[in-house]
Amino acid sequence: MKIPHKALVALVDGERFVLLRNDGQIFEPKLSKVEEPSLDPTNFSAGIRHQDKAGQMKGNTDLNELAHGAAAAEWLNQKAIAGEMDELVVVADPKTLGEMRRHYHSELEKRVVGEVDKALTHEPLDKIEQVLANA
């Protein structure tokens, strides 16, 4: 995957959100940590979609995790609207990525240059770089 020089990389799962920057080249990412924002997950709108009987019986949907994904998307939306980012790659587990997409603002959508549906928030930077280079 192409990751532009100085592009931001958002690593997100249901509990953690880490923002990285590519200081390397387009096909050879070299990531550095920018920040780990503290989020206040208050958007539980995903609960409406998961109130069916089958979803309740299986119990495989954690609304707190989905709310965290929504909060990460809202944080990224604010940065995009304020013009504080140019290009962004989003890396999240499939469930979180799906929830985040529901909350993307049009300004954020313009800046997303790639998405990877993998849970990598607890992996070392060199492994994340390798996964992104091979994506």
Rank of each mutant, 00 (worst) to 15 (best):
A7Q: 08
V34C: 05
K79R: 15
V18K: 15
L88E: 01
L108R: 05
G47L: 04
E109A: 12
D117P: 06
V12I: 06
L66E: 12
L132T: 03
A73H: 02
V116N: 09
V91F: 10
R101D: 00
H68V: 07
L39G: 08
Q130Y: 02
R102N: 03
W75L: 05
H50F: 15
V9S: 04
L31G: 10
V18Y: 00
E65Y: 08
K6R: 04
G114R: 00
E107Y: 01
D93L: 11
N22G: 03
H122W: 07
K33Q: 15
T121M: 09
M85N: 04
Q56F: 14
K58P: 00
M57G: 06
S38W: 08
G24D: 10
D40H: 05
N22Y: 02
Q51I: 12
R16C: 15
D86L: 08
D117G: 15
P41M: 07
Q51M: 13
L39T: 09
N134E: 10
L88N: 01
N64Y: 10
E107R: 08
G14Y: 04
R49F: 15
L108S: 02
K95W: 00
G55V: 11
I81W: 00
Q25L: 12
F27H: 14
P124L: 14
P29L: 06
H68I: 04
K6V: 08
R111C: 02
K79A: 12
K2D: 14
A92N: 05
E115L: 08
D52A: 09
D62F: 13
I48E: 13
Q25W: 07
P37Y: 03
A135R: 07
L125N: 11
L19T: 01
D13M: 07
K110G: 04
L8A: 07
N134K: 14
E84W: 04
I26N: 11
E35T: 15
R102F: 00
K110Y: 07
